[in-house]
């Protein structure tokens, strides 16, 4: 079957899912879609830009808190508040990214982690605004979107559009240039690309879509907590992308599917063991994968996808 055929089948399957599945599974699918978007946005940096952020929870959290605050503190309805998610996240990504892209490799990762910790701490400490540790509760979508099926469709639509946009970006001239920066920043400079600025633009785009994921999750969850910005949350898209494959655009989506199903299966039986399980998987994947993130650091020749047919 051609690719368009599979895609069509998938869309139909997702569309009729609410008819066949109980609400619990719709919620699981909703979560998968949100995590999938988060990991795909993250992977725009890691897979396509060669930049590994250890602080993407910051942009997820900004995207969750911005609309939640608008709903709670300004009384805006959800649909008006939600656009604040990508805006706030993009603003944060612009501010932090400006500094982060000045560094590379391990230091890039560490500075992104440091900024995420700042976001976490601010959320945690600024009780008057954010509710601190107690979070913000009762952040619900309007009645029409409140049922699991309705919110599922809503999430699917927003995530679908976001993925489409990300796909366009990856395939655009910007995406080509981003890959060239990943492959060889020095060479990229000598074809006229301002490497840092390019990385910053990618960082902001990635942050903005992470924010969309955060916003969707806030209204799905009905509440937001400082944990959203904690460093363990930053590892979620990393692990998901790693599991699914960072070299392909759809890898993180597959990873999100596997990750969430596994989480559900394991936590259902032994809730306490889930982190142990996750940690072990991460360790095994890293030790067993021969070259890790192929070429991210090493530059080993490797086919990322079928090369353009000349």
């Amino acid at each position: 079957m051609p690719r368009a055929g599979w895609l069509g089948l998938l869309v139909v399957a997702l569309a009729v899912a609410p008819l066949a599945l109980p609400p619990f599974f719709l919620q699981l699918l909703t979560e998968i879609a949100i995590v999938g978007l988060f990991a795909t946005a993250f992977n725009l940096l890691m897979g396509f830009g060669g930049m590994v952020s250890f602080g993407h929870a910051a942009y997820f959290a900004l995207g969750a808190y911005a609309p939640a605050l608008l709903v709670k503190r300004a009384g805006l309805p959800m649909l008006l508040a939600l656009p604040a998610a990508p805006l706030a996240a993009a603003a944060g990504a612009l501010l932090f990214g400006f500094f982060i892209v000045r560094l590379s490799h391990t230091y890039f990762a560490m500075l992104s982690l440091a900024f995420a910790q700042i976001v976490f701490t601010v959320i945690f400490k600024w009780k008057a605004l954010t509710g601190g540790d107690d979070g913000l509760l009762d952040v619900w979508p309007p009645a029409a979107l409140k049922s699991p099926a309705a919110y599922y469709y809503f999430t699917l639509a927003v995530v679908g559009l976001s993925l489409l946009a990300l796909r366009l970006i990856v395939d655009s001239p910007f995406g080509y240039a981003l890959r060239s920066v990943r492959e060889n920043p020095r060479r990229a400079r000598f074809i006229g690309i301002d490497v840092r600025r390019h990385q910053l633009v990618a960082f902001v785009i990635s942050g903005a879509f992470s924010g969309v994921a955060g916003g969707l999750f806030a209204f799905y969850n009905g509440s937001v907590f400082p944990d959203f910005a904690y460093f363990t949350k930053s590892f979620e898209p990393l692990v998901v992308a790693l599991l699914g494959g960072v070299q392909s655009f759809y890898g993180p989506l597959a990873g999100a599917f596997g990750f969430k199903i596994l989480e559900w299966l394991v936590s259902r039986q032994w809730p306490v063991y889930w982190p142990l399980f996750l940690g072990s998987i991460v360790i095994v994947v890293i030790v067993v994968l021969p070259y890790g993130f192929v070429g991210l650091a090493g530059g080993r020749p490797w086919r990322t996808r079928p090369a353009a047919k000349a």
Binding site: P173, F174, Y176, A177, R179, S180, E183, N184, R187, A188, I191, G192, I193, H198, V201, G295, G299, R300, P301, W302, R303, T304, A307, A308, A310
Partner: peptide, 22 residues
């Protein structure tokens, strides 16, 4: 750009030269 095809290597250089890279 080792993991890009030869064509993509040169295409990217053209894209940048013609200032289409954003």
């Amino acid at each position: 750009f080792r993991r890009l095809s030869a064509l993509e290597n040169v295409q990217t250089a053209f894209l940048s030269h013609h200032r289409r890279h954003y």
